[in-house]
Design a protein around this nucleic acid. Structure first.
Length: 442
RNA sequence: GCGAUUGUAGCUCAGUUGGUUAGAGCGCCGGUUUGUGGUACCGGAGGUCGGGGGUUCGAGACCCCUCAAUCGCCCCA
C-alpha cells in the first residue's frame, strides 16, 4: 500500500501560532480600538473582485497588475482576481453600494490580500493589512486626521520609537505629469550610466528611480529635478496645510523628496512610516491621496486619502505573549474526574484563566502543570480516609501567589461544595481541605 | 523574475577525507524513584537524511535537476 503523502502548504502562506499569533491579534485589536476613537466605520470587503477593478485602478503597467495578481476565470467565464490591496475594492464599493450618501466617508477594515511575489522576511503571498480610507474629502485636514490616526496607532503599539514618518507631495495631476516628464528627460540624458534596473524603470516608472538603492544611481538621483519646482500654487498650498496640520496635531515627520508611490492613482500627499529594524521590508505603513482613482472606476471626481499597513510587519515589532495561566487544576485522583471538570468550569465562569491537567500518567500531571507556569496549582487528590467519595484539595504555596486567584478559589469552593467552611484569613493560605461526598456530586 | 545560504526525529542540532544496523538534547508516551512537589533513573514510540536522477563496490556526505525556507535585488505594506 502506498504511503499517503501529506499535502504541502502553499508557498508564501503562513500558519501563525503562539506568540506570533498573539502579536498579530494584538495589532488588529489595537487598530480596532484606535479606529473607533477617530470614528472610522468598519467595513467588510469581498476577497475577490472583477479583474478590471484592480487593473484600472492601479495601472496596467504596475508590477502588481502585470505580474503579481492571482487572476482566474470562474465557471461563468468571468475574469476574477484575489484582491492585491484594499483601496480599489473600497472605491468600487463606494460607487456600487450607495456609500456616496455618507460622504465624506471614513472607513476601516483588515484582512488577507494576495500577491504572487517571491516570499522573504515580512513579505508573503497571502499577507494581511489593516486599512483606513477617507473618501469624498478634498481638505488637507483629512490627510492630517488619517496620519494622526496612524501615528497614534504606532504609539499605542509601542513601536513609534523606531519608526519615522516620511512625507512628500506628488502634486496635482498637472504638477505630477510635468515633474514626471522632467525626470524622464533628465534621466534619459544619463541613461547609459544608470543601473540596469533603473534603465528599465525609465520607461515604466521613472519616479521609482528616485529611491533606487543602487550606488550607480545615487549621484543622479541627488541632482534630479525636484517636485517642488513643478508644484502649482494650489498644490503647494495644500501640502503646506498638511504640514501645518501635522504640527498642530503633534505628529512628527520628515520631508523626503524622493518618496514616491508605486501605484498610478496617487496624487498630492504621499507618506510612509519607515523602520530600520525590518531589513529590506522597512515600510511599516504607507499611503497617500488618490483623487483620481474613483474617476478611473467610472465615478464622479472624488477626492480621497488612505493608508494601509502590513499586519505581519507590525507584529514583528510588537511585544505580545500568550495569557498567563492563573490556575492549574491537577487531577491526581482519577475517580474525581467529574468533580475536577465541574470545579474548573466554575472557576472559568468566575473569570480565572484556568486549565485542567487530567490526562496521561496521574503521577506526572503535577509536573506538567508546573511547566505551564501557573500562578497557582490546585491539586485534586485522593482523600486521606476511607471515604472514596471524598477528595483532598491542596494548594501548594507558590511564589507567584495572587490574591484574586486564591480568593476566587475560596469563594467558589465555599459556595458550591463546602458552605460551612469558615471564611477566615487563613483560608487564603490553606494547604489542604477534605471535601466529603463530592466525587459523585452533580 | 535574479543572486547567495540552508534543508538529518515533533523542535534545536551533531554526524570526522564517502565505509557496518543514522545519533544527542528537548518534547511526547509508559515505568521506577520522590511524596506537599518544578527531582533522578529506566524504557518506548517517532527518520524512505526535502524529493528525483547520477558517480561509486559502497552516498546523509560528491555531482546534476527539482521543491522549500532564509537573506538580499526587484516590487511593495
Amino acid at each position: 500500500m502506498a504511503k499517503i503523502e501529506t499535502p504541502k502548504p502553499i508557498r508564501g502562506t503562513q500558519d501563525i501560532f503562539g506568540p506570533e499569533a498573539e502579536a498579530f491579534a494584538h495589532v488588529v485589536e489595537t487598530f480596532e480600538r484606535v479606529r473607533k476613537l477617530y470614528r472610522f466605520r468598519r467595513v467588510e470587503m469581498p476577497v475577490f473582485e472583477r479583474t478590471e477593478v484592480f487593473s484600472r485602478s492601479l495601472g496596467e503597467t504596475t508590477d502588481v497588475v502585470s505580474k503579481e495578481m492571482y487572476s482566474f476565470e470562474d465557471r461563468g467565464g468571468e475574469s476574477l482576481t484575489l484582491r492585491p490591496e484594499f483601496t480599489a475594492g473600497i472605491a468600487r464599493a463606494y460607487l456600487t453600494a450607495g456609500w456616496q450618501q455618507y460622504a465624506p466617508l471614513k472607513v476601516a477594515t483588515h484582512g488577507p490580500l494576495f500577491r504572487y511575489e517571491r516570499p522573504q522576511k515580512g513579505r508573503y503571498r497571502q499577507f494581511h493589512q489593516i486599512d483606513a480610507e477617507i473618501i469624498g474629502a478634498a481638505e488637507p485636514q483629512a490627510d492630517v486626521e488619517l496620519l494622526a490616526m496612524a501615528d497614534q496607532l504606532l504609539k499605542e503599539l509601542g513601536i513609534a520609537d523606531g519608526v519615522t514618518l516620511q512625507l512628500n507631495t506628488l502634486g496635482d495631476a498637472p504638477s505630477r505629469e510635468a515633474w514626471r516628464q522632467a525626470l524622464i528627460g533628465y534621466f534619459r540624458d544619463h541613461k547609459a550610466s544608470l543601473s540596469e534596473d533603473s534603465q528599465d524603470r525609465l520607461e515604466r516608472n521613472p519616479l521609482r528611480i528616485l529611491d533606487s538603492k543602487d550606488p550607480r544611481d545615487k549621484p543622479f538621483t541627488a541632482e534630479a529635478p525636484k517636485i517642488d519646482a513643478f508644484l502649482s500654487g494650489e498644490a503647494q498650498d495644500f501640502f503646506g496645510q498638511v504640514c501645518e496640520g501635522l504640527k498642530a496635531a503633534g505628529v512628527a515627520w520628515q520631508r523626503n523628496e524622493a518618496l514616491v508611490r508605486g501605484l498610478d492613482y496617487y496624487r498630492h500627499t504621499a507618506f510612509e512610516f519607515v523602520t530600520d529594524r525590518l531589513g529590506a521590508q522597512g515600510t511599516v505603513l504607507g499611503g497617500g491621496r488618490y483623487d483620481g482613482l474613483i474617476e478611473n472606476l467610472g465615478g464622479l471626481h472624488t477626492p480621497a486619502v488612505g493608508w494601509a499597513a502590513g499586519i505581519e510587519r507590525l507584529a514583528m515589532l510588537v511585544d505580545a505573549s500568550e495569557p498567563t495561566l492563573e490556575l492549574a487544576v491537577v487531577l491526581e485522583y482519577p475517580a474525581a474526574d467529574l468533580f475536577a471538570q465541574r470545579l474548573t468550569s466554575l472557576l472559568r465562569r468566575e473569570g480565572l484563566v484556568c486549565e485542567m491537567f487530567a490526562t496521561g500518567s496521574p503521577r506526572k500531571r503535577f509536573d506538567r502543570a508546573v511547566k505551564a507556569k501557573p500562578k497557582h496549582i490546585l491539586v485534586v487528590a485522593a482523600p486521606d480516609g476511607d471515604d472514596a467519595n471524598s477528595v483532598f484539595l491542596r494548594v501548594p504555596s507558590m511564589e507567584r501567589r495572587d490574591e484574586r486567584v486564591s480568593s476566587t478559589i475560596d469563594a467558589a469552593i465555599r459556595k458550591e461544595f463546602a458552605p460551612d467552611w469558615p471564611e477566615t484569613e487563613q483560608n487564603h493560605n490553606w494547604v489542604g481541605l477534605t471535601l466529603g461526598g463530592v466525587v459523585q456530586a452533580q
